[in-house]
Design a protein around this nucleic acid. Structure first.
Lengths: 132, 132, 132, 132
DNA sequence: GTGGTCTAGACCACT
DNA sequence: GTGGTCTAGACCACC
């Protein structure tokens, strides 16, 4: 999978990395059980610092998304997809609230907003199902 | 409107403040043209520094949401609500992508996710229409 | 002459007033020797504070543009137009430098910039000649 | 590039700084992509406070002139020069109107005024082209 | 009374 | 070592 880091963005590199790996898994570019490049390898590929990659890997390990083994390398957890949940977390809810507030001020009507959410969900989800 | 700041959160205070003010406007708790507390007043109410409030106010001014006037204080722009737009910005889209990726890993099915988005949009939007 | 004050602008009111009076004279709406409304009158017309008008008047007096007489009121100096000068002052030059820098960054080519300057000069100057 | 701050001027330091940086870019002393001194460095060089420099940098960032990066410092955006525009903004136009009014009262004839504008535009623009 | 500006100094996140 | 954030406290311009 192609990972793209924007060094000019305000968002810290390790977070960009985490987001892209999550996105890669959700969209099926990366599969449960699959190996990821070593810290050194990925750092060198992306032209960033080793510690930055390690930080992203370790935080994703704490989220039970990656399995980090100093000898065997890094791979994606086989149970990375959690069982079906009924409700989203408070954190996500609060992100949506901030987002919706902005959209309302920006003149985005409900149907446009919802359609966009659906489109993005489908884009990510379908791509994974296709890749299966 | 009640503004609540969580000093323990990672998110900087001034951003929490900006989000809450946007939320207040979108949900009708705060109305276009309405005056906001002075920087000193709000800072003292929240137990934070004047400059932190001023930073939030000024950034919202740059977004054309507030009108900041050295002589008369701060008020909400009368044209905070932009004309209807057809599509959300790239920034919002990328927030949704990250959010959806997380939700998919967390086992939130599409219908739950969309329902939640709709619920939040309605909650904010209806409250404003009720208040009109 | 219609004077318009924008209370929402960052520029102090007394400066807006000074600019508009200078503009009025340069464009012939106001004529040398003509009387201006009293401080109280103008303040009331514009819905602003008396002291603000007085400040503008006094600063224009210091520029030899107005003649302020506490008994007889305020009028425009009869020799408000200075004799022909060969070069603009350092202050104006520095304003032009800042303006030109911005325009160059903004992609305004020289001919557009100069044409605009000419158009504005003519607009103001011709209006006065017409009014004579 | 030599930056000079006049602490006695009315204009706030951070604005003087912004003007000088814009001037430096427009005149080619500073080039797109070039690094600027760190906030602390420049503040110390100029004998002013860090936050004052940071404010100028951040406002220029908002104008898409600088790229501010907590990790790597500050550099000039590679696309500072906007594509060719046909007309100047309202803000610039109103600056010119005030300036022209003053010049007319000061006895600056049109040709002198226009020649001065051309001279300044050329001075800045040619210097950049020479430096390329 | 309002916000604007500036200073000084601290701690933190990121790389 | 970089900028970001926050605090504290001062003085100023404007109205």
């Amino acid at each position: 999978m192609l990972i793209k880091i924007d060094l000019n963005k305000d968002e810290p590199i390790y977070k960009q990395l985490m987001d892209q790996i999550r996105y890669g898994i959700a969209s099926g570019y990366l599969k449960p059980g699959e190996e990821l490049p070593s810290v050194r390898q990925l750092a060198s590929d992306l032209g960033i610092n080793m510690h930055t990659v390690a930080k992203a890997y370790n935080l994703l390990k704490a989220e039970n998304i990656l399995i980090v083994n100093s000898r065997k390398g890094v791979k994606i957890s086989t149970d990375v997809f959690k069982p079906i949940q009924n409700s989203i977390g408070n954190n996500s809810r609060s992100i949506i609230e901030d987002l919706v507030s902005k959209c309302i001020l920006d003149g985005i009507p409900k149907d446009k907003f919802i359609t966009e959410c659906e489109k993005i969900y489908d884009k990510i989800n379908n791509r994974r199902n296709d890749n299966d």
